[in-house]
Amino acid sequence: MTQFLSYLCNGISLGSVYAIIALGYTMVYGIAKMLNFAHGDVIMIGAYIAFCAMQYWGFPPVISVLAAMVVCTVLGMVIERTAYKPLRQASSLAVLITAIGMSYLLQNVALLVWGANPKSFPSVVSLGSLSLLGGQMTISGEAIVTIAACVVIMIALTLFTGKTKMGKAMRVVSEDKGAAELMGINVNLTITVTFAIGSALAAIAGVLLCSAYPTLQPTTGAMPGIKAFTAAVFGGIGSIPGAMLGGILLGVIEILGKAYVSTELGDAFVFAVLIVVLLVKPAGLLGKTVHEKV
């Protein structure tokens, strides 16, 4: 039983990282209707920046995380302006392939700058682990911080999209771009801000991911990126609570699948669940079904 609980706890912790990444995916998809394949690689860049700040420049962890967030925010905005903005009217296939190209670009730039050898990422969390049930079960400090960060981000984003002017503008743009423009909303600015927020979240996710799984290399972001995207689709893409739910469920399924079914088949398990969910509910768990008009 305690074994199960500790697996569950690991699952929720990993799932929280997926959820933070998935939030970035889902916000961008909701507003720009595009799959930002490069999102996973922004995570990796964020982790590298935090790594450099801590190891080479000697900054404390908090400042390092902030530095990573700033760099990723700028990076996200630059990517959006240069690669995606010119393709606003293009087919979704063209945008998707551009995003894949961007993902390769980031990976290979990282490969040239930091090399292919994996770096051992120092944990940013100095919190000790928590003992429960008379020492039978321990929860690592990283897991606690990850779950807490995820909850805080979730609440902050909900308030942001519900209460602030920019947040409301985002919701309007995702609903109807043309009408939003007529109401005097700066659509391009809104989309850029969405990318900025998503990328800042990616930086946080990168640091938390590498604190828990401390090998950092140029391909670190790729698989979590794909899984987080899966999580976003799983929960219903475009929906913020959906991304959260999807991320956490996916993390739990992955860890439990690896523990009880087969270590090698953990990833296959995750994808199989995604397929089943999409077949039963093609719009995801919390997604809205949109009817096609002729």
Partner: peptide, 23 residues
Amino acid sequence: SDYRMLVYAVVLIVVMLATNSPF
């Protein structure tokens, strides 16, 4: 060979932009 994939990526993005951007 170090730059191979980098060139790939850049070519991919440039071709997509060149063929799809309205400008």
